[in-house]
Amino acid sequence: MQKTIYGKVYDTEQSVLLARGTFIDGHTSDGRIRKGTKELYRSDKGQFFLSHTTQWESKRNYIESVSIDGAKKLYATLPEHTVPFTEAFAEQQAPLP
C-alpha cells in the first residue's frame, strides 16, 4: 500500500515493518467476526507510519504518518515485534537492513 501525505511518500513495500497487531473490527449481522490489522513501519528516510487494513467491504484501508513518540507508543501496544526496539528507534535515522 502506498500514500503520499504532504509530499512524503509512505510505501509498505519499500519500508521496514517494525510491529503489527490484529484486532476485532466488528461483527456482521450473522455473527461473523471481522478483523483488521495495524502495522507500524519505518521508511528508508526514517519516517514512521501506520497502515490500517480491514475486512469490511464498505471501509477502506489507509496509511497515516506518526511522530517518533507516537510510533514508540504504538510499538509498545502492538503485540508482534519484527524489529527490536533499540534497532527500530535508534538515534541514527539511517535505513534499517
Rank of each mutant, 00 (worst) to 15 (best):
T53S: 08
D25H: 03
V66S: 01
T54S: 06
Y75E: 05
Y62N: 10
S29L: 12
S29V: 05
Q47S: 07
E57H: 12
T54A: 00
E91H: 12
T28G: 03
E91L: 15
H52I: 14
L96H: 09
D69E: 15
V66P: 00
N61K: 05
K45T: 11
Q92D: 12
K3G: 01
D25M: 01
F49W: 00
D11E: 00
D69I: 13
L18K: 04
G46F: 02
G70Q: 08
G31V: 09
Q47D: 15
G36R: 05
H52F: 14
A71P: 09
F49N: 02
T53G: 01
Y10W: 05
L17R: 09
Q14D: 07
G21S: 01
E13Q: 15
D30M: 08
L74E: 10
D25N: 08
L78W: 01
L40K: 04
D30C: 13
R32H: 14
T22Y: 07
K59N: 14
E80D: 10
K45Y: 07
Y41E: 02
E39Y: 00
R60D: 04
G46I: 12
K59E: 02
Q55Y: 08
L17V: 07
P79A: 14
I24S: 15
L96K: 02
E87S: 15
I33G: 06
K3L: 03
Y75H: 00
V83W: 15
G26K: 02
V66N: 11
A19L: 01
A94P: 08
T28M: 00
W56R: 03
